[in-house]
Design a protein around this nucleic acid. Sequence first.
RNA 1: GCGGGAGUAGCUCAGUUGGUUAGAGCGUCUGUUUGUGGCACAGAAGGCCGUGGGUUCAAGUCCCAUCUCUCGCCCCA
Length: 438
Amino acid sequence: MSLQTTPYKGARDFYPEEKRIQNYMFDTVKHTVELYGYEEYDAPILEPLDLYLAKTGEEIVNEQTYAFEDRGGRKVAIRPEMTPTVSRMVAAKRQELAYPLRWYSIPNLWRYERPQRGRLREHWQVNVDLFGIEGISAEFEIISVADAIFKAFGAQRSMYAIRLNSRKLMDYLLSEYLGLDDAEAGAIAKLIDRMHKMERADFVTKAEAIMTPLERENGVVERLLDILSIKTTKELPEIIRALPTVLELEHVLKLLDEAGISNANFDITLMRGFDYYTDLVFEIFDTDQDNNRSMMGGGRYDGLVGLFGVEPIPTIGFGLGDVTLQNFLRSHHLLPNIQTPTQIYVALVGEVFASAQKPITELRDMGLNVAVSAPGKKIGDQFKIAQKKGIHYVLIIGEDEIQNELFTLKNIVSGEEEKHSLERIVSIINDYRINDSY
RNA sequence: GCGGGAGUAGCUCAGUUGGUUAGAGCGUCUGUUUGUGGCACAGAAGGCCGUGGGUUCAAGUCCCAUCUCUCGCCCCA
């Protein structure tokens, strides 16, 4: 029995060409969020299992978390998300941090479940969080940052939709306006979450099954359907529209619209699961039908830092998964062809390995990325290898070059070939790289 | 955890109602001589047909089981 070469189920190998894509995506994200003043942090991949039990549903922790006992008998988990960790970090230094905090990270996360399109067991997730601002300027900023990331990749507004809702609004709607008890409200909320996946009649049947006969007689299902069909906050019943959370939501939408973010809209069917969100929630969807998934989700979670026994801190943030982001970029042809960072491939001709070291070192000292071919290969093969590696320049070093201190530089894309000094070569390559950038 | 689809060369796949030594394209390697690649030509390597059992004179092909991958469901941090 031989060893497998395939990676662990639901996890990916990143060969250099794939790692380049990931680096490009993460570098673009980092650059964008840093424009807004966000700073990178990180934390261990292992956390005490308790950290997740405190705020997440039983099923998620028990069945979808990699959890085990360490050698000291402590129950630990591989982090399935970053939000509890960052809340822990903030709580630990609650008194000494300078608010507002603008923090981001790109951790790898693990969840134990069956892989499917857009969802693997290991993925990387951009986490962007803003701590310490209570008002809607935080909502406006965090959604603007999310939007800026998509714009930084060259996405058009028609390619993605930003959907907003309010958890407080939905709580009021289900318990006060429709008069459902907690269990019913929870079940209906889950149903709403996936209503776009089912037929209307199917939704009605399932909704009726959740409600009591009396509620059905009183037309609660019809009232639910009516309210779920609305497209703007203006259509909400007057009593609901006057809620502070709705006024705030309208204000955020107005600010976004004035900022040119025209693809942000109210969506009363947006639920965002059932976890720690306390007020506004939002998601970004791919408008491409083949990738009809939430790529990014977030919202306000004012209560999480307080779980660590300190005064709560108002917080809003979002997460953006690398798998769904890459699917998005691919389906909209937004992934550039990213070159190897190696700029020159040195082809040695003849017995010059030792004497070629000096010019090679000088090139590196001047900042070029230089790979040297294996000795003893024919020059034609060395061209082939350089081409296959995607390196555009081959530098030929033989007896002749070393004697004259003029080296043969060949652009294997154009086929042009000339002899130059090392300084001239550096300048040619640097100019070429600038012109060749994405 | 539940369901659909698929496993044949490194990759993408063909393989007739079961019938001799298993096929193509791409890729890899070698050569068409000596410091010039891509193109072309010639050649080579590379398969327990996912694994185990069964039916049959005969199984890549049919049946059962199992494993893996994949798409969905559940769930979604």
